[in-house]
């Protein structure tokens, strides 16, 4: 049974009562909220994800609630709760769905140290994963959304989850976060793809989430071998430049992008070294999305 199999009233009831058990990648989250924008966001953007009836065990127990007090009336806010505890300060109510997404990422980053978790977008083609670690503003999420809209499978737009034992990447194909100008870029290029409500004035500017393709969600249990590590950079007016990137520098940057490298210690170092061995390492500078997509489609599997 998927989210889309529940009618709106049933979904809202489950969420209100805190018995929506949502399966995303390797995790099951129990979600509770009476906030309508979150309910609508889940209905639209998580349509293809499996739900469980009364799962006996949930990895994460999360809730979004409106804090009590006078503020409720003149400046409504939202809290993210992890098993009854609030790890963050409240945000304005209009940002509730964005906060849900950030909270879900926080759960993984803080509790999934069985895996090595990197801050990177991951897409896949032909069984090989393209890993894109990038600082904010490099155009990572736009490129990721465009790749996914043009046939690559989405593994994750934010979190590369790697099994240190097998070196494989685990999908977590939750909605793709888009920021500011990239929201309109994607809306214009791919008018058929659903994008959720925009949240204005967040810490990251305007934020909206793109619905992940059905195929990516349906194959969310299918792992991928690493194929390429790519450091993309959008620069207005630049000519397309795909250059090999030093492997030592790639390893260094991957470590810098890992959330839990020091938690895992040596297994993380071995795992990322192997990943760098097995991947083509490149930097990409681009201004035209079309050119970038065309070039990345021709990437060959290369091992050192």
């Amino acid at each position: 049974m998927n989210v889309s199999d529940l009618d709106d009233a049933d979904l809202a009831r489950r969420l209100r009562q805190g018995c929506l058990f949502l399966e995303t990648g390797p995790f099951i989250s129990r979600i509770q909220t009476s906030i309508e924008s979150v309910q609508a966001g889940i209905a639209l953007l998580y349509a293809g994800f499996p739900v469980h009836d009364n799962a006996p065990f949930a990895d994460f127990h999360v809730a979004l609630t409106r804090p009590a007090g006078l503020r409720r009336w003149f400046r409504p806010q939202v809290n993210f709760l992890f098993d009854g505890w609030t790890p963050f300060k409240p945000l304005p109510l209009e940002q509730a769905f964005a906060m849900f997404e950030w909270g879900m990422n926080w759960c993984v980053v803080n509790h999934a140290h069985k895996y090595l978790v990197l801050h990177a977008a991951v897409v896949e083609k032909g069984g090989r994963a393209l890993i894109m670690p990038a600082p904010p503003g490099a155009g990572k999420s736009t490129l990721c959304a465009a790749l996914v809209a043009s046939g690559w499978r989405l593994l994750s737009d934010e979190l590369a989850i790697i099994s240190p034992d097998s070196g494989q990447l685990l999908p977590l194909p939750r909605p793709v976060g888009l920021k500011n100008a990239s929201i309109d870029v994607i809306r214009t290029r791919y008018p058929d793809i659903a994008i959720g409500q925009e949240a204005l004035d967040t810490a990251k500017g305007t934020v909206a989430h793109m619905k992940p393709p059905g195929d990516s969600v349906a194959s969310q249990q299918l792992m991928a071998m690493p194929g390429w590590v790519l450091f993309p950079r959008y620069r207005e007016g630049s000519a397309l430049a795909l250059e090999p990137f030093s492997r030592a520098a790639t390893l260094s940057r991957l470590v810098g992008n890992a959330f839990n490298f020091t938690v895992l210690g040596r297994p993380a170092f071995e795992c990322l070294s192997r990943l760098v061995d097995d991947s083509g390492c490149y930097s990409l500078e681009y201004s035209s999305l079309d050119e970038a997509l065309e070039r990345l489609d021709k990437l060959e599997v290369s091992a050192s």
Binding site: P26, A112, H113, K114, L264
Partner: peptide
Amino acid sequence: RVHLESECAL
């Protein structure tokens, strides 16, 4: 076990 292994790593 996933959660316990995570705690062991920490």
